[in-house]
Amino acid sequence: MMELDIKKKLSGANGPFELRVQTEIKKGEFLTLYGPSGAGKTSVIRMLAGLMKPDQGRISVNEQLWFDSVQGVHLKTRLRSIGMVFQEYSLFPNMTVRGNLVFALPKGENESWVDHILGMVGLLSLQDKKPGLLSGGQKQRVALARALVRKPQLLLLDEPLSALDTAMRNKLQDDILQLHAELGLTTVLISHDYHEVKKMSDRVLVIEEGQLVKQGKAEDIF
């Protein structure tokens, strides 16, 4: 169980506004943040990851406190059990596909887990290639695999599929759903794509101008 209650002043195209999100995320839930650009969705994910500090509030994950403005707690990103996939791939160009995954492996962990993950996402044949030689879909699959190497409690996906064509997007949506179920992940996805939201989410939060305007099952919202 994860509790999220955050406030943060942000500045957007129409001037400053306050982002205010309060929700609980159940273990194993697939939650999607939906809404127009600049509404504050990415800021929510960045605050969950510890890459941005909320002005006020509290984030706790399975009884562990990640952020609390009253107690002055702000757990560093590297100490939070997260996996993160960015829109722009963010693979390390100096490492091979396998190297990217091995880098993510916590100290002392066996490399056979890397083989397992590579197999799950169908990347074994590309493991010795450098990311620069891969297609967009392949890169994003590597990024997804890399984010899962640590067996994170929380998987954060910031519009990971928006740069891909429809066929590749569908394929990766299936992959994500399969991994989410197989590894028992709790996932937060940002998406602009209505079909994607409908297909993937257990629950949707609609955020506009920093405010949580609607939430519920995708079929109730759209």
Binding site: R78, M84, E88, S90, F92, N94, R150
Partner: peptide
């Protein structure tokens, strides 16, 4: 790119490891 640095932190790596390896 700053996202490479952030990706490294999100993978549990310290500032030092990120500097040397990424």
């Amino acid at each position: 790119p700053i996202t490479l640095v952030e990706a490294s932190y999100s993978l549990g790596k310290s500032t030092w490891t990120t500097l040397l390896r990424v």
